[in-house]
């Protein structure tokens, strides 16, 4: 049993290593990793940051938490696309004919996308620092904020893993992820305070884990403007715990589903 887990871990890291090599070697991917965080930070900071006033604080600083959350969640698209792509290539038959752990392809993919998100976060943070974002709450809290972003993104990537294993082509992934990820990241407190949203949208935003993630990150970085009213919804009052609960639930549901789906999907060829 121990030996099996060790082998599964070893196989997963072999696959993860292969995927990481591809981040560097596929120009489109590299550009996406490098450019999109810079673009997001720059776009929001200069287009919205200048025109929206937050009493008692900087909108740019307020925005960064939302941009961090949105970007790592969009990173999950990469997981889905990567798996969908693998499933169509002959390489999957190679993997399936090897005496390797059958879940290594999915575990390796989600693991390598953590590396991808770490790169994204580093670039976003550096860009943020350039445009005036600062950490006000100490290094430890900041590290915890990044860890929370990565953990939630990791859990979320398992949802897209299942989608990626279920769709017929890579193109579908991009469309599917837009339909899911756009509402999820916009009907939230990512870019505007959720208090300003109309009725049902406000409720959705308050209970949306993307909001709690954003709220948690803002608190940990110390980016909540002074004088901001205390949130009334429980998830936003306890954003770290609420985000962790969601991450755990997502993992508990989507890890077994994705692994099973991989075995089934691979068997159809």
């Amino acid at each position: 049993m121990i030996k099996q887990i060790r082998l599964a871990f070893a196989d997963g890291s072999v696959i993860a290593k292969r995927n990481v090599i591809k981040i560097v070697r596929v120009p489109e991917v590299l550009v996406f990793v490098l450019i999109s965080p810079i673009m997001f930070v720059g776009l929001f900071a200069f287009v919205f940051g200048g025109s929206i006033d937050i009493p008692g604080g900087s909108y740019r600083e307020f925005l960064m938490g939302g941009i961090f959350a949105q970007t790592v969640i969009f990173g999950a698209t990469f997981t889905g696309a990567g798996l969908a792509d693998d499933m169509q290539k002959g390489i999957i038959n190679r993997f399936r004919s090897l005496p390797m752990s059958q879940s290594a392809v999915v575990f390796g993919r989600t693991a390598s996308d953590v590396v991808y998100n770490v790169l994204s976060l580093i670039i976003m943070a550096l860009t943020g620092l350039l445009v005036g974002w600062r950490i006000h709450n100490g290094v430890i809290n900041a590290v915890f904020a990044f860890a929370l972003l990565l953990f939630f993104a990791y859990a979320f990537s398992w949802i897209m893993a299942l989608v990626g294993l279920s769709v017929p082509s890579v193109e579908v992934i991009n469309n599917a992820s837009f339909i899911v990820i756009f509402p999820l990241t916009f009907i939230a407190n990512t870019f505007v305070p959720s208090d300003n949203l109309p009725g049902p949208l406000k409720t959705f935003a308050e209970w949306n884990p993307v909001s709690s993630l954003t709220q948690a990150v803002r608190e940990l970085f110390g980016n909540i403007p002074l004088g901001t009213p205390e949130p009334t919804a429980w998830p936003l009052q306890n954003p770290v715990i609420y985000t962790l609960i969601w991450s755990a639930i997502i993992l508990a549901i989507f890890v077994p589903l994705s692994v099973r789906r991989y075995r089934r999907a691979a068997a159809k060829s």
Binding site: R18, I21, R25, V26, G90, N93
Partner: peptide, 8 residues
């Protein structure tokens, strides 16, 4: 179909 990874 050659089961090799193009980018490796």
């Amino acid at each position: 179909f050659a089961a090799v990874d193009e980018y490796l």
